[in-house]
């Protein structure tokens, strides 16, 4: 565990907490894409199949449980909570899951570290995580007024990915045999998807203006 990895995980955790804060205290999920949240729940469900078979550390298991629990409860809140679900605008969140899920599944069947069920599912989860933010980014572009919490949520998610890249660079130079092409390439793609968002996020921050993405 290096500082970049820990900072990345903490940023990821912070993003989840920001979203839960919005849902719990403001009782709103306005501007949040249910599609993206459902994809994340699927990402964690398929990636953490090893949770009971491969013990890595207490930290690892705890974080897995947090990400699994939070992602499924967020989906539950947006879909089923009496008050929260009212703020969900289905007509704006139109991205189709299977446009992302099916190509990722096919790619996982072709490109994986080992052709076993668990490894194919793991590769699938890596590919899917890389593109799972797309429905959220599309929704942001359609939203006239992006509230601060939603902006911070997406920013923290992007920051988490950028920190993971630093973690890989660090690990590559400090560990022997540390080469993971699947995670590296997908992680790079995933981070690049945030580039546009980052640009407008920093612009709005610099100019002290409300965040708004151009159509």
């Amino acid at each position: 565990m290096n500082i970049f990895r820990l900072a990345g995980d903490m940023t990821h955790l912070a993003s989840v907490l920001v979203l839960l804060l919005k849902i719990h205290t403001i009782k709103s999920c306005a501007g949040i894409s249910l599609k993206t949240q459902e994809l994340y729940a699927l990402v964690f469900a398929t990636r953490y199949l090893d949770i009971f078979t491969d013990f890595i550390s207490l930290y690892n298991t705890t974080m897995k449980l947090i990400f699994l629990g939070s992602s499924f409860s967020i989906v539950w809140y947006i879909r089923n909570h009496k008050i929260v679900s009212r703020s969900y605008d289905k007509s704006q969140d139109t991205f189709r899951h299977y446009f992302l899920i099916i190509p990722c599944l096919l790619l996982a069947l072709l490109v994986n570290e080992k052709f076993t069920f668990k490894e194919v599912m793991w590769a699938f989860s890596i590919y899917l995580e890389a593109v799972a933010i797309l429905p959220q980014l599309v929704l942001l572009q359609r939203t006239r007024n992006i509230d601060n919490l939603t902006g911070q949520y997406v920013f923290l998610l992007g920051a988490y990915r950028a920190l993971y890249i630093l973690n890989w660079i660090y690990r590559y130079f400090t560990e022997t045999h540390y080469v993971h092409w699947i995670t590296w390439v997908s992680g790079l793609v995933q981070t690049l998807l945030y580039a546009d968002f980052f640009y407008y996020y920093f612009e709005s921050w610099k100019n002290n203006k409300k965040l708004q993405l151009p159509a």
Partner: peptide, 10 residues
């Protein structure tokens, strides 16, 4: 040491 297919990242 070969890490095999142990995925130690989250």
């Amino acid at each position: 040491p070969s890490e095999g297919n142990i995925h130690d990242e989250l």
